[in-house]
Simulated scan of single mutants.
Amino acid sequence: MATLRFGIDLGGTKIEILGLLVLEDGTNKVVYQKRIATPKGDYHATVQAIAQLVLDAENELKSDSQLNPIINLPGLVGVGIPGAISSKTGKVKNANSTWLIGEDLQGDLQNALSRPVQLANDANCFALSEAVDGAASGSDIVFGVIIGTGCGGGVVVNGQILNGVNAIAGEWGHNPLPWQTASDVALACYCGLNGCNETFLSGSGFEQHFLQRTGLAKTAEQIVALSEQGDVDAEQLMQDYMTWLAKGLASVINILDPDVIVLGGGMSNIERIYREVPKLWHNWVFSDAVDTQLKPPKFGDASGVRGAAWL
């Protein structure tokens, strides 16, 4: 029998479910996918919404005459969350979706679904997806990077997520940007510190730096477009951004020495990053050569929910 894995991507505005059918020969295919709005601010409604998504998916797949004879139900369930599970309390911490903080999400979902449920940080799920069968498939050490609204990361070693004793492995966004110069203006971070990687490398940080330099409020996409059109200020910020990213990733390479770094989030769509950043990071990597590869994600926005299925 084939194994059915459900991945859930729990976001601040939407919840996505993906059904991944893993066949006996190890191949897999997507057999179900759906998105609904997140019941923002309502914890109990969020738990119920996730449970109902899984149960509805199973009922629909049961009625599929081609799939029903080969799938093994109930399905396995993994959930990617915008936070982490505290090793001290077993409850959610560090979540952007603040109504999850302090709640026993894993226990409540297991009770609602009457089965084990695996939870992991959404950046860890992204890294796992790309390590299992994505852009970094077959690699021993993978660092999955999120550079979107925020700046996060996840580490996968030999196909397993590295959580760490504090459940924060890979959270490089709240390390300071290394090797800062006088021209690198350190902005305040929501965490209470100044000069975090997130304030330089996230899309929102990128926009803040442009606003500070020019007085113009532009989206990251607009700034990138301006740089491509020859705007001097936008192009200078792009050059600085790639230097900042090279520095930030160089510090990770010096500690983790990953085979592959995979970028996700809105800023990962800037194609020139993959050409230019590896030309820069050798200036800060403590090695005579840097063989680490920098890659875009194979599964794009679907990597997080696929990674949750692989939990």
Rank of each mutant, 00 (worst) to 15 (best):
C189D: 15
Y190P: 08
V185N: 10
G192T: 03
A169H: 12
Q180I: 11
A167W: 13
G164M: 04
L177D: 00
E171Y: 10
P176V: 06
P176R: 14
Q160Y: 11
W172L: 15
N166M: 14
W179L: 11
P178R: 10
G170M: 01
A188D: 07
P178W: 08
I161G: 09
L177T: 02
A167Q: 08
Q180R: 08
Q180L: 06
D184H: 09
A188C: 00
A169T: 12
Q180W: 00
I161S: 07
C191T: 06
N175M: 15
D184W: 05
C189P: 14
W179G: 05
W172M: 15
V185C: 05
C191Y: 07
V165L: 05
N166A: 14
N163A: 06
A186V: 05
T181K: 15
C191L: 06
T181E: 15
G170S: 01
V185R: 12
V185T: 13
A188W: 04
A188F: 03
G173D: 06
L187G: 13
L177S: 02
I168T: 10
A186F: 08
A186N: 05
I168D: 01
E171Q: 14
N163V: 07
A167R: 02
A186P: 06
N163P: 00
C191F: 10
A188Q: 08
Q180A: 06
L162H: 06
G164V: 07
L162R: 08
A167N: 14
A182G: 00
N166Y: 12
Q180N: 00
L187Y: 12
N175E: 11
W172Y: 15
W172T: 12
H174T: 05
C191E: 08
N166C: 09
L177C: 03
P178N: 04
V185A: 06
P178M: 14
Q160N: 09
A182P: 01
D184K: 11
G170I: 04
P178Y: 11
P178K: 08
I161D: 08
G164L: 03
I161L: 13
E171R: 08
A186H: 13
E171K: 09
W172C: 15
L187P: 02
H174Q: 08
L177R: 00
G192A: 01
A186W: 11
P176D: 00
T181G: 15
P176S: 11
D184I: 07
L187A: 13
Q180H: 03
N175L: 15
W179A: 12
